[in-house]
Write a protein that binds this DNA or RNA. Structure first.
Length: 139
DNA sequence: GCCAACGTTGGC
DNA sequence: GCCAACGTTGGC
């Protein structure tokens, strides 16, 4: 099973907004970047990902699960754009900040650090395990 | 709010 | 197919 990281501005759509959607989850729509879209097309049902607050917050706040594989983005008629649905699984008991991530040698190769512009990105198994440990939350 | 970094667009 | 101009993202 693969792991991912989803970025969102908490002022626009934050962790609390996703938890409010419950089991059904929500479309991860509005992505207009090919790399991010391609990553979503690779996602399988049951894949898990981190939920990261960008712009303000700047920390990983929880774990989400893919609950629908890639399908057309309902917010556009442009058929280039697909998205998945995600639902909140559990919050991080201890949110992990970008500052901590940047300072951690084990996380120095993360896409989050290397390419801060990519909003949907892959996370390696090693990074996943380590971040769950730092977040004091089971993987 | 600023601006660097990145991605996309479009004229040539 | 190149690359300048433009728009957007996101850390600071």
């Amino acid at each position: 099973m693969a792991h991912w990281l989803f970025k969102s501005e908490p002022d626009v759509f934050g962790w609390d907004d996703l938890t409010a959607k419950g089991e059904a989850g929500e479309e991860w729509d509005g992505v207009r970047n090919y790399q991010a879209r391609n990553n979503m097309r690779l996602m399988k049902l049951g894949d898990t990902g981190f939920f990261y607050h960008s712009r303000s917050g700047l920390e990983i706040v929880g774990i989400v699960e893919v609950c629908a594989e890639a399908h057309p983005d309902s917010t556009t008629d442009d058929d280039r754009w697909d998205c998945v649905d995600v639902r909140a699984l559990r919050p991080f008991a201890n949110p992990v900040s970008l500052e901590v991530i940047k300072a951690d040698p084990q996380l120095s190769e993360m896409v989050l650090v290397k390419n801060s512009r990519l909003s949907v990105q892959p996370v390696t198994d090693a990074e996943w395990e380590h971040l769950c440990h730092l977040g004091k939350t089971k993987p």
